[in-house]
Nucleic acid binder design. Structure first.
Length: 184
DNA sequence: GCCTATCGTGATG
DNA sequence: CATCACGATAGGC
């Protein structure tokens, strides 16, 4: 997995007005919208109603214009969501976020499928053991759900915690991943 | 820049 | 269950 990182400042300079392509697809856990810039996938989120997904995309990238259509980046990302595929290397991500957020998101990538971590563990991993609350915030702003496994983070007391796309969906995904690992 | 509200938290009583 | 401190962000001014 290749990650193209960009802060808000950089993004404004480099990607102002650039067209972002988006398309919709079905996954095991619901309909998703996937979007990509010239550099890679920049957004992936669940959307039971297509319009709401599109609205969320637009609000995250207010300075861009949009056009419906699929491309290689999107296809590669989507193939990761299908069972049995492990070709994680060929996927390109284009992430816009603060340096803190980027650190958190990269830390999430080290959480293997089928296991979970906690907000405080992530905080320690990135060297700010006290910044638990902030970690929760950053995790919740993950623009590419599933690709960056933000759903594998739970509360340290064992409760599932929240999920941007619905707590029940989070449980559902975790359950499915747990079973996948058993099979292997 | 400062002030404030807002979190996908965690610890305490 | 109520409350508080925590760190980072976004938005209003």
């Amino acid at each position: 997995m290749i990650i193209e990182e960009m802060t808000a400042d950089n993004y404004a300079k480099v990607c102002k007005g650039v067209i972002i392509r988006y398309s919709f697809a079905e996954t095991l856990f619901g309909r998703v919208i996937v979007a990509s810039s010239l550099l890679g996938v920049c957004f992936l989120g669940f959307c039971d109603i297509q319009e709401s997904g599109l609205n969320e995309l637009k609000s995250r990238f207010p300075k861009n214009s949009f056009e419906e259509g699929a491309d290689e980046f999107q296809m590669a990302a989507l193939s990761l969501l299908q069972p049995g595929k492990q070709g994680r290397a060929e996927v390109r991500l284009h992430l816009k976020g603060t340096s803190f957020q980027l650190k958190v998101w990269k830390a999430l990538l080290s959480v293997p499928q089928g296991s979970v971590t906690t907000y405080s563990q992530i905080a320690q991993l990135i060297g700010s053991p006290k910044a638990v609350r902030a970690v929760g915030n950053a995790v919740g702003k993950n623009p590419v759900s599933l690709l960056i496994p933000c759903h594998r983070v739970i509360c340290s007391n064992g409760l599932p915690g929240g999920y941007h796309w619905g707590a029940d969906r989070k449980k559902c995904i975790l359950e499915w991943e747990r079973k996948q690992v058993e099979v292997c």
